[in-house]
């Protein structure tokens, strides 16, 4: 058992994952999913905990986390919007939907708003072409979302990560005098 003092629920989840998937390293992804849905992303200590509690090297945990797009190891918003840019959604106006969200939020795809609340990501085909243009907010489907109705994605009620912590206030930009 671990020597470090991990949150009690993480220890429970690790045990449950190991009990359900005892073979190979199969307990890792179920554990990461639970932390991800609790925090909204995977902070470094969660990866340490995974390695420690599941008996794997930290390198292995990193190799897995870096492979899968839903496992994000950088701070991610309380609300994560995935806009599908697949072919059928593109034909239904998904690019304009994405543009509208970008311009409204003042961020580019892949970024998080300054207050840390919303992360905007492009999704590969979400297997919802019947709902084109389709999107997911915290993995809840929405569609069709007409490009001009982009606000639906910011307003629709969705389950939010309970353990999400807002990022610390951004530091004032550093001013360097090159003169």
């Amino acid at each position: 058992m671990s020597e470090r003092n991990w949150p009690a629920e993480w220890q429970e989840w690790a045990e449950a994952s190991r009990a359900t998937f005892p073979n190979a390293q199969s307990s890792l992804m179920p554990f990461l999913h639970r932390v991800r849905s609790q925090r909204g992303w995977l902070p470094p200590e969660a990866l340490d905990a995974a390695a420690d509690l599941l008996g794997m090297t930290r390198q292995h945990v990193n190799s897995v986390v870096s492979f899968y797009t839903l496992f994000r190891s950088e701070p991610t918003g309380r609300r994560t919007i995935h806009v599908c840019l697949g072919l059928s959604c593109m034909m239904a106006g998904a690019d304009t939907l994405m543009e509208n969200l970008e311009h409204h939020l003042g961020i580019a795809e892949g970024q998080t708003t300054r207050d840390g609340a919303v992360t905007l990501l492009e999704a590969e085909c979400l297997a919802a072409c019947d709902l084109a243009p389709a999107a997911q907010v915290n993995l809840v489907y929405r569609g069709p979302v007409a490009p001009e109705a982009f606000r639906e994605l910011l307003e629709m009620p969705v389950p939010e990560p309970e353990g999400w912590v807002p990022p610390s206030a951004p530091e004032a930009p550093e001013v360097t005098n090159h003169g």
């Binding site: 072919l87 085909c125 297997a127």
Partner: peptide, 11 residues
């Protein structure tokens, strides 16, 4: 793991 663009039956 239905992911083939254009396919949404298994979902």
């Amino acid at each position: 793991d239905e992911g083939e663009p254009g396919t949404f039956k298994d979902r």
